[in-house]
């Protein structure tokens, strides 16, 4: 199959069980990701923005094969990752890496940095001798700014600060020269003064590695900073509701939810922020994801609701402007 995407999700749905409806009731399930079609091109950076619980982490994990989708397909270089076997699958695993949100949980507590960063290289038997592995670790630690590397390689995770741990996680992720990296809320747990350092490091590495990034975040400001030259996708209750070039999406959002979200983001500029008004929604609080409204999932809060239409059938993702997709009946041709 031909595709211009490096990684592509086609009609992806991931359902999770969510406990019982009552003490003796049936188990309830809901779609964390609901019929998402979406791709990341070679060398491209895409930010995936959404509120907590919208399914962005699940989508990211499914796109690198850590979660098996209930329906739909994930293609890597045009091949279905769940049909890959043996060497091909192993190569995919090498090429697709993830950096997790919580650097306090994602690093092995009783292994040294040296072992943590070298584990992938060893597993895939990329380097034949210990000397070469060591040289590679030195190079990687230098690259992520953990200098002098000799000092950091013998440390345990608990001896490092949050920012340093996240750098170790980044070194591990890039140790196999991946082509596709999912970065999941990687600065959320990092001190404000250090966040930009981690983001700048990743942007710099991206140029060196020429890797594609799926950058997951709840923070529109951070999403914009990271994918300034790339695209941004907005997710709401399991669905991608808008995708476009980052700059265009931020300056000219189309979907009412994107508009509301952008109008609510606090801006670090008092001359602007005190004047800004949030777009009024019909309901402030999001619905329970287990029981979303029928039709467009934003219909119960949307100020532009067209009764009998939006609350009946889900709008598809249509190209409202070149390269700018939105799923909303206001933009149906």
């Amino acid at each position: 199959m031909k595709t211009d995407y490096l990684v592509e999700a086609i009609n992806l749905t991931v359902r999770f069980k969510a406990g019982l409806s009552s003490l003796f009731g049936k188990s309830v399930s809901f779609s964390a990701v609901d019929s998402c079609s979406f791709g990341v091109r070679n060398g491209e950076v895409v930010s995936l923005v959404g509120e907590s619980g919208c399914g962005k982490t699940t989508l990211g994990k499914t796109m690198i094969g850590l979660i098996k989708p209930t329906h739909g397909t994930v293609l890597y270089e045009g091949r279905d990752i769940w049909r890959m076997k043996g060497k091909e699958y192993s190569l995919f695993r090498r090429n697709a890496q993830i950096i997790h949100q919580d650097p306090y949980a994602s690093l092995h507590p009783v292994k040294r940095v040296y072992d943590i960063v070298s584990s992938g290289i060893r597993y895939h038997k990329l380097l034949p001798s210990e000397n070469e592995i060591r040289a590679k670790i030195v190079e990687l630690l230098n690259l992520v700014g953990l200098t002098p590397p000799e000092y950091f390689m013998n440390k345990y995770a608990h001896q490092l600060s949050g920012g340093q741990r996240q750098r170790v996680a980044i070194a591990r992720a890039i140790s196999l020269n991946p082509k596709f990296i999912v970065a999941d809320e990687i600065v959320t747990m990092i001190d404000v003064s250090l966040r930009i350092g981690i983001l700048n490091l990743l942007l710099d590495l991206r140029k060196r590695l020429n890797a594609s990034f799926l950058f997951i975040t709840h923070d529109f400001g951070v999403a914009r900073y990271f994918a300034e030259e790339g695209r941004t996708a907005v997710m709401y209750l399991g669905s991608i509701i808008e995708v476009g070039k980052t700059d265009e999406l931020i300056h000219d959002p189309l979907h009412p939810y994107t508009k509301a979200l952008l109008s609510a983001v606090p801006v670090p500029d008092p001359t602007l922020s005190k004047k800004r008004k949030m777009i009024e929604l019909r309901k402030i609080d999001p619905p329970n994801p287990i029981n979303p409204p029928p039709g467009c999932k934003f219909s119960d809060r949307c100020p532009f609701l067209m009764e009998g239409k939006c609350d009946k059938q889900t709008p598809g993702l249509v190209e409202a402007k070149p390269e700018h997709f939105v799923s909303c009946y206001l933009f149906e041709s």
Partner: peptide, 15 residues
């Protein structure tokens, strides 16, 4: 070091 959705994307500097 604080990113924003408004204004130009200035280059941000960490402390």
């Amino acid at each position: 070091a604080t990113p924003s959705v408004l204004g130009d994307v200035k280059s941000l500097k960490p402390i």
